[in-house]
Nucleic acid binder design. Structure first.
Lengths: 94, 94
DNA sequence: AATATATTTAGAAAATATTCTAAACAGGTG
DNA sequence: CACCTGTTTAGAATATTTTCTAAATATATT
């Protein structure tokens, strides 16, 4: 995991909205795309950035590709941020 | 606070390193700059991005400008991320 | 007041990111 | 197999970001 890739992925509003949509469950590329006023190619580009950042993973089914949140990277980012805040091990457990 | 600005600020390795340095306490622009192989102008640019994102604040003293971490925005980001993970209010308290 | 030190601003060059259109690919269905 | 649907890839246009040099500003010191 690279924080550069992760934060870069999170820095785009379209990509953050995609992640928020995926909170409710997995969606196909087409379903995701229909929520935006953009071509499928552009959505595919954003999904590829999220995939590289490991913020989502995909699974194929028929000729659909489903995307799903990957929460483990989110936890790593939160850990980095909490260390930045200077949280001690004890404080972390509260 | 805008998540776009915050994540964009966090997406650059130089800026993340500046934040990590500031964890130890406040530093002047010059002190920060001397840790990097870049001109003062470039460091000033990065500091302005961090300032706009409210990840740091500055205070002037003599002809030095000191920078300091602002942890409140970091907490807002962590909250956004924990909501993305789908954490319930109860789980948050553990 | 002149000079020195610390930092920022302006403007330009180079690198990266975002978006589009058109074409390609992959898996079903008639 | 030919075709349709869903998605990605390639390539180009545009926008944004990062970095530099040079100049400007602001505060202190002599």
């Amino acid at each position: 995991m690279s924080f550069a890739e992760t934060f870069k992925a999170l820095s785009d509003p379209v990509r953050r909205e995609i992640l928020t949509m995926l909170k409710e469950g997995r969606m196909s590329a087409g379903e995701i795309g229909s929520h935006f006023n953009m071509t499928g190619a552009t959505i595919s580009y954003h999904l590829s950035i999220l995939k590289k950042a490991e913020l989502v993973f995909e699974s194929k089914q028929k000729n659909f590709i489903y995307y799903e949140l990957n929460t483990s990277v989110i936890e790593e980012v939160m850990l980095w941020l909490s260390e930045l805040k200077g949280v001690t091990d004890n404080e972390e457990d509260q």
